[in-house]
Amino acid sequence: MSEPSLTAPHQLSYTYKRSLGPVFSKFFTALRDRKVLGMKRRDGTVLMPPKEYDPDTGESLDEMVELADAGVVTSWVWVPKPRRQQPLTQPFAYALVQLDGADTAFLHAVDAGSEDKMSTGMRVKMRWADETIGAITDFVFVPAE
């Protein structure tokens, strides 16, 4: 133990491709067209993000429905110091957002400017990128009212 331990920066990085399958392919293709598709279950409730199978019954799902581009924050956390590769470079909120017409909430970023603009129950709407490519990063949320 005479000498100190060696230490060095180490970056692990890799790229990969994943085929989206029929449901997510439609979902991301619609995002490119600035539309959001959820998945309707047999009981009429709508899953967002859409799923290929009903998580309760396991039955196959294929009825996709267009949702509003606005919704309600059901939970959130403020990110004061964004890290590289997070969706925004300025401070932002990660939030669970339930879109109008959906029965489940999904995680995304809210570009609210400051933490005091955030509250559970607040309305948010999508702000689309100038160029959409069919990715979840094609939009972020902003406060709606």
Partner: peptide
């Protein structure tokens, strides 16, 4: 993501980058 605006989006291209400070420890050092 797709190269052609008219093709359906069928592939997700992922890129993972993890930054570490690796400490070798006594034996590996």
């Amino acid at each position: 993501m797709s190269d052609d605006k008219n093709d359906p989006v069928e592939i997700f291209r992922g890129h993972v980058e993890l930054d570490y400070q690796y400490t070798a420890g006594v034996s590996a050092s």
